Amino acid sequence: MHPFVRRIAQLYVGLVLFGFSTALMVRSRLGLAGWDVLHQGLADRTGLSIGHVVIAVGALVLLAWIPLRQRPGWGTVSNVVVVGFAADAALAALPSPGAVVPRSALLAAGILLNGIATGLYVGAGLGPGPRDGLMTGFAARTGGSLRRVRIVIEAAVLLAGWLLGGSVGVGTVAYAVAIGPLAQAFITRFAVRVPAEAARSGQAAESPERTDPCPAF
């Protein structure tokens, strides 16, 4: 398979699986990742589906890239749209179990699948997610460390989502602990090596080695 075709295919498989992993965590009702707490809270307040909120928030975050002088890639724009639609489609198909054991299984599957999906779409090297670009942009403009900027932004997002009624629980903590190592392992596994000639000709939009290993999509 041609490397660019593989990168495109890997990108979209990863984004669809990312949306599916979000739906798994929503159906577990045991707590969500920080940004998804905000998405769920906004969805509850507005009556929109969580997928539509994911798209709307992603578009607004992408607009914030302009003053930060961040440059989106094809994968960045695709991320804004595909993850939200995939999440809504998965939520329409998934059951909502009542017992704790199947809910816990959904949570574990969601976190693991999220790590795999992250490895696929980041490893494709076609641009970071809009929320990641926001963090790296703020870090570059303020001179702060990426870790500190990430903590501040995600804490603010989590607090806002919780105040809006988003789901915070054991899943929130489990995701925060597990996603970094999972994402790093799968990014290493799925990173597409772009030939030097392609990189020189400008076909490499974003090298996986320079992408934040713990994306928030």
Rank of each mutant, 00 (worst) to 15 (best):
Q40H: 08
R27H: 13
V100N: 06
P72G: 08
V57R: 08
R148H: 11
P181Y: 03
G41D: 03
A108C: 13
R148K: 12
V170M: 14
S145T: 15
E206H: 13
R210K: 12
V53A: 03
F217M: 14
A205N: 05
V82S: 02
A176D: 04
G165A: 06
E154G: 14
P130H: 07
A90H: 00
A56G: 09
L163A: 13
R71A: 14
G58E: 03
A140R: 15
V80N: 06
P3E: 09
T46S: 15
L120C: 05
R71G: 10
G166V: 03
L94Q: 04
A99G: 11
R147L: 11
A23I: 04
L62N: 05
G41H: 01
G125S: 06
T172E: 08
A191M: 06
V122P: 04
L63N: 04
V168N: 05
Y12A: 02
L42K: 02
A43Q: 01
R189G: 04
F217Y: 14
V80C: 09
A178P: 00
D212N: 15
W74D: 02
V80L: 12
R6H: 07
L24C: 06
S167K: 09
D88F: 02
G41N: 04
V37Q: 02
L113G: 01
V53D: 01
H39F: 09
V192I: 14
R29D: 15
A196Q: 12
L91Y: 03
T118D: 07
G47A: 08
A59D: 08
D132Q: 10
V149N: 04
A216F: 14
M135Q: 06
M25N: 12
